[in-house]
């Protein structure tokens, strides 16, 4: 609803953002695709056409399957902890409590910690087998301290990432919870539903949409987890905690294999796009509302 003049103006106003994002989307992606079909190593000045060789090498590398598995475990593990934990925590924070504001601030804080700091705090001060708090607690109770990053490298990373993302899930679920009308809950109570049934039949369906959003948005970010791996285990021991993002980084900037890394990048893009399609649908539906 507007005039021709204002529509023309609107196009001009949008132009910079559209052009910039168009370039940002197309140029690097096309280059990645191009490199993925080349024999191109930064240590070797001669490049040549490789066909699908890069893909073949990357996919048949035993590290590849392991990294895919690790990526899925990492994403799945963190999602499980944050969604279940987030629902419980949101339900708790939705209760009338003293000092609600401060509790809320304490709970969301981990989300604002930059990934390298989060990872280093956990690595050194909590999970360190010699001096970490966990080790101290274990000693107090007479247990053998666990060497987290040597024995359970992937699980340790899952724990750290889950700590960072639990606040996000909690906050979103809490917001959704608070938008549930009191009347609806009271109506269910009048209908004779007990607390558990009210949760299952009223609260959970109301949260469904928020849970979907949490899962999808987190997945996008979790697929690209990088700094936590870099500063804690460096992908090891062996490839035990290498995810796809870290494998691509390793191929590119440690082995200087541009072709191989690009092939890995293309695979990562495809994976992310599958998730993205679902996310876009969920968010897009909301646009009409």
């Amino acid at each position: 609803m507007a005039t021709r003049e204002s529509r023309t103006l609107a196009r001009i106003m949008m132009a910079p953002s559209v052009i910039v994002l168009l370039i940002w989307m197309i140029v690097p992606l096309v280059l990645t695709l191009w490199f993925s079909f080349q024999n191109y190593n930064l240590l070797n000045p001669i490049t040549s056409f490789a066909g699908l060789l890069n893909y073949q090498f990357f996919v048949t590398d035993p590290a590849f399957l392991q990294s895919i598995g690790n990526t899925l475990l990492l994403v799945g593990g963190v999602l499980l902890i944050t969604v279940v934990g987030g629902i419980l925590l949101a339900l708790l924070l939705d209760q009338p409590i003293f000092g609600q504001g401060i509790v809320r601030i304490l709970v969301i804080s981990p989300f604002f910690i930059m990934p390298p700091v989060a990872a280093l705090i956990w690595k050194n001060m909590l999970m360190h087998p010699g001096y970490g708090i966990f080790a101290r607690i274990a000693e107090t109770f007479g247990f053998q301290p666990v060497d987290w990053f040597a024995q359970f490298p992937l699980f340790s990373i899952i724990l750290i990432v889950a700590w960072q993302w639990l606040p996000f899930a909690t906050l979103i679920l809490l917001t959704a919870l608070q938008s549930l009308s009191e009347e609806q809950k009271e109506a269910a109570e009048m209908d004779g539903a007990n607390a558990l049934r009210r949760f299952i039949y009223i609260v959970l369906p109301h949260l469904a949409r928020a849970i979907t959003v949490v899962i999808l948005i987190q997945t996008i970010f979790l697929l690209g987890i990088f700094a936590e791996v870099l500063v804690t285990t460096n992908g090891g021991p062996g490839y035990n905690s290498t995810n796809l993002a870290f494998l691509v980084y390793r191929t590119a900037l440690l082995s200087f294999d541009v072709g191989g890394a690009s092939a890995g990048g293309v695979i990562a893009v495809i994976l992310a796009n599958i998730v993205a399609i679902f996310l876009m649908r969920a968010v897009g539906r909301n646009l009409d509302a």
Binding site: L21, P28, L253, A268
Partner: peptide, 20 residues
Amino acid sequence: MWMLSTKMMPAVGVLVPMYL
């Protein structure tokens, strides 16, 4: 939606060309 979709692109996917 298209603008948002550019956000979905994983960084590793374009690490190599960006670095170069």
